[in-house]
Design a protein around this nucleic acid. Structure first.
Lengths: 340, 340
DNA sequence: AGAGACTTCCAAAGCGCTTTGGCTATCTTA
DNA sequence: TAAGATAGCCAAAGCGCTTTGGAAGTCTCT
């Protein structure tokens, strides 16, 4: 059942039927009702390929997925996706993942824009002066950044959590508990979120005349193993830290294991705080010692990004609005006063 | 630059240019070369929307993503995706995720097929007599199942690992080590993989005149917390199992925690084997006691599924070929002889 | 009653590709 | 040498929608 048949059936022109269906004003209410009725009755659904050719709109949002043998997709991605999908579903939006060579995402961005494959894209895990940002900005496709970049002379729309504030608060708490030697096991130092977290922590320390020594910062990919290694190296120093802030629950698993291996205890010898993106399958309250966290649901972020993308596509949102979500600091058993 | 302009430029008809570009035989080699040259020189790329309207082919593969507030996307998904994306990239295939109400995926399947949004789909985590399978089979869209179903009167193409064999081997080893009371912490009992694993284990036990009591099987969603709970319940019984097989590393984390909480040790009091899908961020060799596993890379499976989907789309693969991958049993420190 | 302004509808021209159904040479074959 | 086959190309008709540029009819106002 296509438009032609439907309009024949109604003794109307395709124009009128199309307009009636798409809510244009130049059609009488009565006619519109007739058309709508017939469309529903016959289960007419406009052919998206045709519509897309005519309008250039695809009804899809895009994500360029870096791939490659050495490239691991972040497990956070799936939770973000849950949220995104949840919203997208209610708006009949599909998501297209365009795999790209991790060393050359530009080609893929150019392709999906040139081909008008998607109406909008989102970008995640941005770095300072991230090329992708500059690119989509000049390409002129609607987009939203999940996270933030830095060092651009233009503004852009983003959704980010207050990473700096979160780690500032966490560090401040630890300092108040008497800790003087803090350490940070961070994610990839080239990503903005990691920079912000470090910044927040430094600021909290500075406020009490303390500093975060270079030796006390580890920037690594967020795996259990890296958490373990980083923690061991930190704890086996001469003057080991008495508190660690850690950028992910998965790394925190490794930290806990390292502490055990060294015969130490949490929070007796070491206080530990980690950032929690809220996974259903790994919860901080279930750590051997319940883990204090800075918490922000990445799933909700996904839903919000989808919502804003939809708004941008339909022209409801414009400009370069940045949105920063506060982060909860949830204190559990893994922090205590500094050992004396 | 579109086909019209290009053909004008070459003083050829659109027909000929189109045919030259798409490798049809009724065009001379010389002309073809001229066309190819010009196309490359001017960076001509056929408009996919137009091509799609004309041919009905989209160059995309689809996945229906169940969503909803209560629905958690499996973290395995992201690893599978890595593999899929890796292959898809090299073939300029995009992946479209169509979010669906978890309680009504059928509507979404029908939509993407009716709209010809994708050329093929894959289905994951199938159950026995899975409705989605029957549906895509009648809808006639090319598909591949990742996993297996059961109880259909038709065959279908799938890629699965030998779950039954894997758990059979694992259980056999445990029995040989003298264990008599085994337990299984399984995934969702309604999914085929879980059924197969249980079957494999039962078979191994039966071969030695042992059985797997109902009390010794737990079927739960694969989270750390569920692993913990299941393990506690098992270990706090009168005659607790001396060996546990566990369907995922994440649950195994919980099992390890439970063992610790109860003041027991691995492998002294309990031998533990888990299935490992090979995540980069959580590795069995890094468990407090290196974990014995049945191992199969889900990432490779993703790549293979993509490969076969591509083959089906281009007509290179036909029929209902099932492919079952063997699973490695990797023995590490977490198994030992049964306590006496 | 006639001019202007709406309202409501339509025919037809795109969007950019593929594919059908020829048409014209050139080449075989008997 | 005439008839049939083949190679190489083209015009035009789709694919199914949106949108432009009217046209006809109805109202309103002077």
């Amino acid at each position: 059942m296509n438009l032609k048949q439907l309009s024949h059936m109604l003794s109307l022109s395709q124009t009128t039927v199309s307009r009636a269906l798409n809510g244009y004003p130049e059609v009488s209410e009565e006619t519109r009702r007739r058309v709508m009725d017939a469309a529903k009755r016959h289960g007419y659904r406009p052919n998206p390929s045709a519509r897309r050719l005519a309008t250039g709109k695809s009804g899809m949002i895009g994500y360029v997925l870096p791939t490659g043998n050495a490239v691991d997709i972040d497990p956070h991605f799936v939770e973000f996706l849950s949220g995104l999908g949840d919203y997208a579903r209610s708006h009949e939006l599909d998501l297209v993942l365009s795999p790209a060579d991790a060393d050359d995402e530009e080609t893929t961005y150019r392709r999906i824009v040139a081909n008008r494959q998607v109406d909008a894209v989102y970008i995640s895990s941005p770095r300072p002066a991230d090329k992708r940002l500059a690119l989509v900005n000049t390409l002129g496709i609607p987009f939203i950044v999940h996270g933030r970049s830095e060092g651009f002379d233009f503004d852009y729309p983003y959704l980010d959590i207050d990473n700096e504030g979160a780690f500032h608060e966490a560090a401040r708490l630890l300092v108040q508990l008497g800790h003087k030697r803090l350490a940070l096991i961070n994610g990839n130092e080239r990503e903005t979120f990691a920079i912000h977290r470090e910044r927040g922590m430094r600021r909290a320390l500075a406020a009490s005349g303390l500093t975060l020594g270079e030796r006390h910062i580890r920037s690594v990919a967020m795996t259990e193993e890296n958490g373990y290694r980083a923690a061991r190296r930190l704890l086996e120093e001469n003057e080991p830290p008495t508190a660690i802030a850690c950028s992910s629950l998965i790394m925190a698993l490794g930290v806990v294991r390292a502490v055990r291996d060294l015969g130490l205890t949490i929070p007796g010898d070491l206080s530990l705080v980690a950032h929690d993106d809220v996974f259903p399958w790994l919860r901080p309250e279930n750590f051997p010692v319940p883990l204090s966290t800075t918490r922000s649901s990445i799933r909700l972020a996904g839903a919000r990004v989808a919502e804003r993308l939809a708004a941008r596509i339909s022209g409801l949102e414009e400009g370069a609005r940045g949105e920063v979500w506060p982060v909860d600091l949830v204190v559990r058993g893994s922090v205590a006063g500094a050992p004396t």
